[in-house]
Design a protein around this nucleic acid. Structure first.
Lengths: 136, 136
DNA sequence: GTAGATGCAAAGTATTTGCGACAAG
DNA sequence: CTTGTCGCAAATACTTTGCATCTAC
């Protein structure tokens, strides 16, 4: 079964404060990819005293601990999602902003091959597809 | 033979000012992917009166005209390169920041397939590989 | 001549940080 | 207790913009 963000904090030695628990809860329950502002909004509903600085500090901390993944999609604002065991990439609807997660092993393999061809070990990658919905 | 940035401006109806000519020249001669600050530095050597606001305005204009390509690699600053006829993606050395351009048609085809599978028409994409050089 | 471009400084965003008060382990 | 965290506001980094002046066409 899936380890919760709180559990991940404990196993990674991240101190669990009230604020972090709330941020963890909100991110756990978010199936989209909120930016810091949006996350702050959601968090504020549970605890209106949390400051945006804490939200910024926490997402950064969680990202460095491998608990959250940060994305810099078009739009200037960083967006976050809970790190999942299975890697996936994103297909972004340029009209609505909707994000579809997908996995394609063939592409993954080809990426490794490309890095290898140039003498590199692949440590990370980013693949974003931007599209418009076809009228079916 | 390759059309210069100046020629592209003319064919796209972009007014050619002194400043734009200089920025065009610097970008033409850059084989790397400078950010606005770096571009401003290079441009300043040719004309110290050009303001950074003009550089920002010009790269945006050129991007919208399809003359330059903008990239938001890790690091917060937007980086630019001259648009080339042939599409390519980037392999970034996370140690040195060096960028290798590559083309992989198989990946391109698979991307289209993925978009198609979800009912989308692919209008743009971004593929960045981050790696470290293997000790050969 | 006129619409659009430039330089400057001020204004915007997004994000980070110094600091005294406070809480987790 | 002690180290690290929080809230606040000020600071920073990158980028955009208002306005008077100037320039390409």
């Amino acid at each position: 079964m899936k380890e919760t963000i709180e559990q991940k904090c404990i196993s990674k030695g991240v101190k669990l404060t009230e604020q972090r628990k709330i941020i963890a809860k909100v991110m756990s329950e978010s199936s989209d990819h909120p930016d810091v502002d949006e996350l702050y909004n959601r968090v504020s509903k549970l605890d209106s005293k949390i400051s945006i600085a804490t939200v910024y500090r926490t997402v950064k901390l969680f990202e460095e601990a491998g608990i959250l993944a940060k994305h810099d999609f078009k739009g200037g604002k960083a967006r976050y999602e809970e790190m999942s065991e299975s890697h996936h990439d994103h297909l972004i609807d340029i009209k609505t902003g909707e994000i579809i997660e997908f996995v394609n092993d063939e592409i993954e393999i080809l990426q490794k091959k490309v890095a290898d061809k140039y003498g590199y070990e692949l440590v990370d990658h980013k693949l974003e597809l931007y599209g418009i919905k076809k009228k079916s």
